[in-house]
């Protein structure tokens, strides 16, 4: 009947594991948006990743193949979006929405024979003595491989965006594609690469759901995670490390609500579920209102059409 019944250590480690799908998808979308492209098809790419990862791990029994299949499937679907929006100049918002529709349909078709099947277990790393450490063991050494991969990826993306020349080019393209083009950068090529990276990340996030978190394949199993990822990028104000914070917030609120119920504290699930979105809006207001435009990190060309002028 009280908060004390919620063990903070266990709560934390469950939250970490639960936040991985949305964390991966949001991280990918962050890179896409940093390049100035808004892809609303995250949900579609995630679920394609989920079904392809599941099919691969089921047939090969190899977690590595499952992971690769998830990434490739998400990336390929993203490539459709990339070609349509970057080469054929279709509208990004509409194309992203169509991508979600297509992804949901295609995944259900591909997955039909795989409903109700249990996949092979996904192995966890063994840290030996480290895992037995009090507190620290529970906090850091009890996860499956992809959790560590996800966090390394966050560090990598942050390093790439802020410390490398490639990251600088990507950001400058996102900030002002005409200027970047004038400087001789390949706007379309860079954006295509970013879009595919985003698709791969989303696919991996979906794969995590189907291979580890749930683990099974069911039609429509992403149940809106992809849309939360979009919210998360905004919440994080386009900074990779804040994506972690946001993923914990979004995942944590759901978990907190379940935990509060389980220990008998009265909550209104509907209002609690709204909270992360309202917080995101507030965060957006705060960063947009701040006087220093550069501190907002919002890409200047986000969602705008680029056409090469000779």
């Amino acid at each position: 009947m009280d908060f004390a019944a919620i063990n903070p250590l266990i709560f934390f480690s469950t939250m970490v594991a639960a936040s991985i799908p949305v964390l991966l998808a949001a991280l990918g979308e962050l890179v896409v948006e940093k390049s100035g492209v808004l892809n609303l098809g995250v949900e579609g790419m995630m679920i394609i990743g989920a079904v392809c990862g599941f099919i691969a791990i089921y047939h090969t029994g190899s977690p590595l193949f499952g992971v690769l299949a998830s990434i490739i499937a998400g990336g390929l679907l993203a490539l459709i979006f990339g070609i349509l929006t970057q080469v054929l100049h279709s509208n990004q918002v509409a194309t992203g929405l169509a991508l979600t529709l297509f992804g949901l349909g295609l995944s259900a078709l591909l997955g039909q024979p795989y409903a109700g099947i249990k996949p092979p277990t996904f192995p966890k790393p063994d840290f030996g003595l480290l895992g037995d450490l009090p507190v620290l063991g529970q906090l850091f050494f009890k996860y499956d491989y992809l959790v560590y991969v996800a966090f390394i990826l966050v560090v990598g993306v942050s390093y790439f965006l802020n410390r490398t020349r490639g990251g600088l080019i990507l950001r400058s393209i996102g900030e002002n594609h005409d200027a970047a083009h004038a400087l001789g950068y390949h706007v379309v090529r860079v954006r295509l690469a970013a879009i595919m990276f985003g698709g791969g990340c989303a696919g991996l996030g979906g794969g995590y759901l189907a291979m580890i978190r749930v683990p099974q394949w069911t039609e429509g199993m992403t149940a809106g995670v992809g849309w939360i990822a979009l919210a998360l990028v905004v919440f994080a104000s386009w900074r990779p490390y804040r994506v972690i914070l946001g993923a914990f917030l979004f995942g944590g609120v759901t978990l907190l609500q379940l935990n509060l119920q389980a220990v008998g504290i009265k909550v209104n699930p509907a209002y609690l579920s709204m909270a992360p979105y309202l917080i995101t809006i507030v965060a957006l207001v705060v960063i947009s209102g701040s006087s220093n435009r550069l501190s907002t990190q919002a890409p200047g060309s986000l969602g705008r059409l680029f056409h090469k002028t000779m």
């Binding site: 349509l84 100049h89 279709s90 509208n91 169509a98 259900a108």
Partner: peptide
């Protein structure tokens, strides 16, 4: 036909409509 096939068909229709718009602009 499963409803998923209809969804996929709608997705394709949208892709083609959006992409062919290109021909009128370029």
């Amino acid at each position: 036909l499963p409803s998923a096939a209809i969804q996929a068909l709608q997705g394709m229709l949208l892709f083609f409509l959006l992409s062919m718009d290109f021909l009128s602009q370029y």
